[in-house]
């Protein structure tokens, strides 16, 4: 498989993992290891003094894993920039999953604020991976603003509905000059494989692994699906239509035989 390169860093795995919704940090760690992922997202929260929580960070720190802090919880570009600065300070990385969703029900990204924040964060030296609508024009604008990837959604977060935005993802992949990471909505390994077959550079999966009956084995299933899909894409997919035969009669092209 071709290596994936984002902002100069090489990734052998094309599966990115989210760390939300696991029933324990131990289970999360096992799923991460089983998936072979080299990029893991995390969120930020305010510390609480009586919080006796096990620190999740120590479970995901690993020299092979790029931490991708997200800005979840922010509602506009200004808050996103504040969150980005905190995350760079806390985790020592300028990589950032930019997500701005003011809507608390569907967590759909705000395109206007996302573009605005991307423009500013790139100037501030961040490697910005924006979570965004599957909007081809927006994705080109984000690319022009300096985004390191675009991360269009397949379906609303957490719905496991697969690639509902298929036609737009196809256009985004065709047009994009930066890696296209399909984020959100991927609910089954077959969805991930489909995205990869279409030419997506990577998939970001969280809920489907975290809430599986056996997250560790599901992580392996996704690892294999992503690899299979990518290999199929790189190998050139075969016929999908009815098989073609050379046609004997030539009503349209007989003029070429004169």
């Amino acid at each position: 498989m071709e290596k994936l390169v984002i902002a100069g860093r090489e990734f052998r795995s094309r599966l990115f993992l989210g760390t939300g919704k696991f029933s324990s940090n131990d289970l999360m760690k096992r799923a991460i290891n089983a998936s072979g992922t080299e990029m893991v997202t995390l969120a930020m929260k305010r510390i609480e003094l009586d919080d006796k929580d096990d620190d999740m960070l120590q479970h995901i720190i690993n020299p092979n894993i790029q931490l991708l802090p997200n800005t979840s919880g922010v509602r506009n570009a200004e808050e996103a920039i504040f969150a980005a600065q905190l995350s760079r300070e806390a985790f020592g990385t300028n990589w950032l999953k930019l997500e701005i969703h003011p809507d608390p029900r569907y967590l759909l990204p705000d395109s206007t604020e996302t573009l605005k924040a991307t423009e500013q964060l790139v100037k501030m030296g961040f490697v910005v991976l924006p979570y965004c609508q599957a909007d081809p024009t927006l994705c080109k604008r984000l690319e022009e603003a300096g985004a390191a990837t675009v991360m269009p959604l397949g379906a609303p977060i957490g719905t496991n509905k697969g690639l509902q935005t298929r036609e737009f993802l196809r256009i985004i992949i065709e047009q994009s000059g930066v890696p296209v990471v399909v984020d959100a909505g991927i609910g089954a390994p077959s969805h991930a494989a489909e995205a990869m077959e279409m030419g997506a550079a990577a998939c970001l999966v969280n809920t489907a692994i975290a809430v599986a009956g056996n997250p560790e084995r599901m992580a392996i299933a996704f690892k294999q699906a992503v690899e299979a899909g990518r290999m199929a894409y790189e190998s050139g997919l075969g016929l999908q239509a009815d098989s073609l035969v050379a046609e004997a009669s030539s009503p349209l092209t007989s003029f070429l035989n004169d």
Binding site: R170, E174, G238, L239, Q240, A241, L244
Partner: peptide, 13 residues
């Protein structure tokens, strides 16, 4: 080859 041609003709893009 002809197989490559058929593959191309079977694709949407």
């Amino acid at each position: 080859t002809e197989a490559d041609v058929c593959r191309a003709l079977g694709k949407e893009r």
